[in-house]
Structure formats: C-alpha cells, structure tokens
C-alpha cells in the first residue's frame, strides 16, 4: 500500500521539482553573469518524460511543465506548450526507434534536443512575427546553451531516476512492485 501511495506521489513530486527548478532558474540565474549559463529544467523534465513515461502520462506532464514555464515567462502564450510538446513527441518517437543504453547517449540526445528546442522556439516566434530580434541571440546561445543543458542533465537525470526508483515508477521498480502485488493476489 505504501508503495502504491509512493507511486501515486511521483507525478506531484515531479511537478513540484519542476516548479522548484523553474523558480531556481528564474531567480538564481537571473543575475549577471549567471544569466548566460541559465539551464532549462523544464526541458530536461520533458526529455525525461519522453523517454521514461507512457505516451498519455508524459504528454499531460509535458503540458503541465510547459504551463509552469509559461507562468514564469513573458513568452507568448502557447509558445512553450507547442515547443515542449514537439520535443516530447520527437523524443517519444526516437525512444521507440533507437536504444539509449547509457547516460552518455542520454546526454548526447539532450544536447541535440536542446538545440532543436531552441530552433523550434525560434521557428514558432518567426510564425508569430516575433523572431526578428531574437534569432541572433538564439544562434549565439545555441551551442553554449546546449552544452550547459547536457552538463546539467548528468545530475538531473540521475536525480529523476532516483526519484522514479524511490516512488516505484522506474521500469525495474514497477516490475518488482507488480510482481509482488501479483504474488499477494495469489496468496503467496
């Protein structure tokens, strides 16, 4: 029972972590010169959801994460919803096609995903006719931002993996929990 409760708490905990991460990245990294190395916790969480969550659950979480990001941003409404959802769908599709065996592969995907997310955001802004002042900044920060995101991903993904393990959300823990529940149902 406790394990089931812990498993149910995974989603609120993930939302809370993302909210705290958004608060940190919007306050701690708001001062000069840290603003140039500001990571994107929400994007890491979206990547994590794209890889480790079911399609429906991950998509809903992505919408919620994007909404948290929009709360803390002056970006046009729907921009983050669209861009993060595009990333989620893309990552989810990739996870079905390729195998991500270790952390290094995950970090590589994170770096490329970050670059893709920035370009997608720029593209949406271009559709909204808001990109004329933004493209130069996006291109300048494309590689540094991707590198920072990749570096931060090393720790964030470990913490998220630990959270999934603790809350029995990871594949191994989930399988172990289901096996145990099955045994309980069979009276063993």
């Amino acid at each position: 029972m406790t394990r089931l409760i812990l498993r149910m708490l995974n989603v609120p905990a993930l939302l809370l972590i993302v909210a705290l991460g958004a608060a940190i990245q919007s306050s701690f990294f708001a001062s000069h010169p840290l603003i140039y190395v500001q990571p994107d916790i929400v994007l890491l969480a979206v990547i994590w959801c794209g890889l480790k969550r079911e399609f429906l659950e991950g998509g809903i979480l992505t919408l919620l994460f994007a909404n948290i990001a929009e709360i803390h941003s002056a970006a046009p409404r729907g921009l983050f919803l669209t861009s993060y959802m595009a990333i989620f769908l893309g990552i989810h599709a990739i996870s079905r096609m390729v195998v991500i065996p270790n952390m290094v592969s995950l970090i590589k995907i994170t770096i490329f995903t970050t670059a893709a997310w920035k370009l997608i955001t720029l593209l949406i802004l271009a559709f909204l006719d808001k990109a004329q002042n933004q493209w130069r900044h996006t291109l300048i920060m494309l590689l540094p931002g991707s590198a920072i995101e990749g570096a931060l991903g090393i720790w964030v993904f470990r913490w998220l993996d630990r959270l999934d393990t603790v809350t029995f959300k990871s594949a191994h823990a989930r399988q172990a929990l289901e096996d145990e529940l099955q045994l309980e149902r069979e009276g063993i």
Partner: peptide, 13 residues
C-alpha cells in the same frame, strides 16, 4: 497533444 498547444498559442501577446 498537437491541437492543444496550437490552440493555446495567443498571437495577441
């Protein structure tokens, strides 16, 4: 998932 963000986009920023 594709529709919701597109509908959510507000051009009158």
């Amino acid at each position: 998932f594709i529709l919701i963000p597109i509908v959510g986009i507000d051009t009158s920023t």
